[in-house]
Design a protein around this nucleic acid. Structure first.
Length: 443
RNA sequence: GGCCCGAUGGCAGAGUGGUGAUGCAGAGGAUUGCAAAUUCUUGUACGUCGGUUCGAUUCCGGCUCGGGCCUCCA
């Protein structure tokens, strides 16, 4: 297997440190509001990688950790803005997040650490950094001294000079260098806080992932993933914290970053307002599988322009595949085609893998098995085509089909067509099969 | 200002130093009461200017255009 490594900007062979325990960490959401689909791209991309790794190294040979950030100023502000508590915000958002992940067929990670449960390790790590001379306390804050780490900027390929030139934010007076970043900051009485050697306060953003990845996976691990926008400063800072605190050369050996989701060519973002939430799309009737497939339709490092047209096309492709599965009686999963594995093993080339799936339509059992690698085609064709259907609804549809069948037998095609139109208006599409059998599906 | 990424046929989207993936849409045929589904056939590509090469969409450089990052956005 080989994957692009942001550290070297090259596609490199992937060799886990311990093949019986392949360790991957992915940055999860900050739970202050519904996540938009851009936030779900890494969830789906790294879920597919998770599936590939397990296929390759064994179902139990992968340890996958994906955090939830439940301490953040955005959460505090959201609680104030909506006049509720932080717990209400985070609980509600996490529940919605998990519900969306289920819809997208994203498997649960082995660890899903929440920041609030790891404050102690964070404090301990900050203390280590200060003791080691990598950080300093000032006015209730603890700050990382970027000059103490000579490799600072290596991941994002920035020099300290570059950063200083670009500093666009007001520099706090207690910082020794504008690039120094917050490890711990003081909380007011109204804000959530934890005791620390620097006073009551809360952790900065980056320290959480350093502490949680260490707790869940160890000081070094194999893959660290996330969105492109995390390269700087988040991942750069994680590396500095972890390597300095742990005295290690590397934090993660392989850094993988997915490209942005765009809308009409522009990055999807909350501030631009050009986003869709998964909930919104599901409410419009788009299946989670269609959304998932759309997110995998481009290579993970490429920008992906998201649109309803794209989902329409993805749905059409899934219809076709499910049609083949249905025709062959929904077979049990067969063999995963090696070419699919080869495609995914080549820097997670999902479009190539999808192209191969299209060649497997004469081998439905293998198609189903191969699609599992992408988390697709896992439902039976009946539920794909019909969805939820009540007994009453089913009886009504069947009665109309029977009526049409009789009309056809009587050569009363006007009535037959009228019944078809009636069903169409109900969102039901008929398919006449050989032998006088008529089947239906939702349009 | 610094840094990073991209530019492929109507659309989406891989890939490759030389025999033009894949899907959708389009056109034509088979099938069909109609329709759907299926199936067969089929067209159109590599931003621009140079360089390297027997040969470049593929490597190198300039340019143009687009996107992104530069302290808390996946």
């Amino acid at each position: 297997m080989k994957f692009y490594n942001t550290l070297t900007r090259k596609v490199e062979d992937f060799v886990p440190e311990d093949p019986s325990r392949v360790r991957m960490y992915v940055c999860g959401p900050t739970v202050y509001d519904y996540a938009h689909i851009g936030n779900f791209r890494p969830m789906v991309v790294f879920d597919s990688l998770n599936r590939l790794l397990r296929h390759k190294y064994g179902q139990d040979a992968v340890v996958y950790a994906r955090n939830i950030t439940d301490i953040d100023d955005k959460i505090i502000n959201q609680a104030i803005a909506t006049e509720t508590t932080i717990d209400v915000i985070t609980d509600r958002t996490i529940a919605a997040f998990h519900d969306d992940l289920d819809a997208l067929n994203v498997a649960a990670p082995d660890h899903e650490p929440r920041c609030t449960e790891y404050v102690e390790p964070m404090v301990a790590m900050i203390e280590e950094l200060i003791e080691g001379g990598f950080a300093y306390a000032a006015e209730g804050h603890a700050l990382f001294d970027i000059h103490s780490y000579e490799k600072y900027g290596k991941l994002s390929k920035r020099s300290l000079d570059d950063m200083r030139a670009g500093a666009r934010v007001e520099v706090a007076p207690y910082k020794r260098d504008p690039g120094d970043f917050v490890l711990w900051k003081p909380s007011t009485d109204e804000q959530p806080g934890w005791p620390s050697p620097w006073g009551r306060g809360r952790p900065g953003w980056h320290i959480e992932c350093s502490a949680m990845s260490k707790s869940c996976l160890g000081e070094t691990f194999d893959i660290h993933g996330g969105g492109l926008d995390l390269i700087f400063p988040h991942h750069e800072n994680e590396i500095a914290q972890s390597c300095c605190a742990n005295g290690t050369e590397v934090m993660a050996r392989h850094w993988m970053h997915n490209g942005y989701l765009t809308v009409e060519g522009e990055k999807m973002s909350k501030s631009l307002g050009n986003f869709f939430t998964v909930k919104q799309l599901r409410d419009e009737g788009w299946g989670g599988e269609v959304i998932r497939f759309s997110l995998l339709s481009a290579h993970y490092r490429q920008p992906l322009d998201f649109s309803r047209d794209k989902m329409r096309e993805m749905k059409a492709q899934l219809d076709r595949w499910y049609g083949f599965l249905k025709e062959s009686g929904d077979p049990e999963a067969g063999e995963v085609d090696e070419r699919v594995i080869a495609a995914l093993s080549d820097d997670l080339n999902t479009p190539q893998a999808i192209a191969i799936l299209h060649e497997l339509t004469d081998r439905p059992a293998d198609l189903k098995a191969s699609a599992t690698m992408l988390g697709l085609l896992q439902q039976d064709s009946e539920s794909w085509f019909k969805g939820e259907v009540s007994d009453d609804e089913n009886a009504e549809i069947e009665a109309l089909i029977e009526k049409r069948k009789q009309a056809k037998a009587d050569k009363d095609f006007a009535t037959a067509d009228q019944v078809r139109d009636q069903l169409t208006s109900m969102g039901i599409v008929l398919e006449d099969k050989s032998g006088g059998v008529t089947e239906w599906k939702r349009g």
